Amino acid sequence: MGVLTDYFRAADAAAVVRALQDADDRPLVGGRDPHFDGVEAKRLDPDVVLGELVAAIRRVPWGVDTVDERPVWPTAPEPGPDGPRGEDDPWATGPWVVELGTAVRDTLAGVADADVPAAVARWVRSEELRPADAGDVQPLAEELIRLARRARDADEQLYCWICL
């Protein structure tokens, strides 16, 4: 089972929650009538794989705090460690949406076009992307960078939709 991820921009978390409540099986990103401008980036989780890209751009080692995020969906409180995790528990079944910190958006948006190939070359050395080739993943990195620039220019935040 793989993790599916889509990255998108929105004005705020309230707009994301409204879209999720009114989705009517429409995708948030992609498709004929998407809710948001975004990038379909399957298997690119925000914590590790996107974090590795952010670290590569910053030229620092990846760490658990590289990507600052906060949960947006589901809106129900997450059960404690002894709480139920049944089929009806949205925290167990997904989808989940997290808002990425402004520093992540600004790191992606701020990388110079001329520096992207070198950042991608560092990114593909991460364990999670092996045995990927830089030429294969550079278009995805460029899409994420352009999305971050549009979000920054519109004073919006970046979000990640995650589903199993």
Score class of each variant (00 low, 15 high):
P79A: 13
V67E: 01
D68V: 12
A92P: 01
D68M: 08
A76Y: 05
G86N: 13
H35S: 13
A109Q: 05
A76M: 04
H35P: 03
R105I: 02
P79S: 11
A56D: 10
E52R: 02
K42E: 11
A56S: 15
P81S: 12
D113T: 11
I57Y: 05
D89E: 15
V60Y: 03
V64N: 04
T107R: 04
P95E: 08
G86V: 07
V64C: 01
L44T: 07
V60A: 12
V67F: 02
H35Y: 12
D65Q: 12
V111Q: 07
R85M: 02
E52C: 12
R43S: 14
A56L: 07
V98I: 06
T75S: 08
W96A: 11
R59M: 02
G80R: 14
P46Y: 13
D45A: 08
E52Q: 12
A76L: 10
T107H: 06
P61W: 05
A114C: 03
L108V: 07
G63L: 04
V97W: 00
W62H: 10
T93I: 13
E78K: 15
P74A: 06
I57V: 15
V97Q: 01
D88K: 04
W96P: 06
T102N: 10
K42S: 08
W73G: 00
L53E: 07
V54T: 08
V60F: 04
A103H: 14
T102L: 08
F36E: 07
G110Q: 12
R59S: 10
G94W: 05
L100A: 09
G38P: 03
A114K: 15
E69P: 01
W91K: 14
D89A: 15
D68L: 11
E69D: 02
G38V: 14
E87A: 15
A109N: 08
A41E: 08
V60G: 01
A76P: 00
F36A: 12
V72P: 14
E78N: 06
R59C: 04
A103D: 15
V98H: 00
V48I: 13
V54A: 08
P84D: 13
V48T: 10
G101K: 09
G38K: 06
P84I: 03
V54Y: 06
T107S: 08
L100M: 09
P71M: 05
R58V: 03
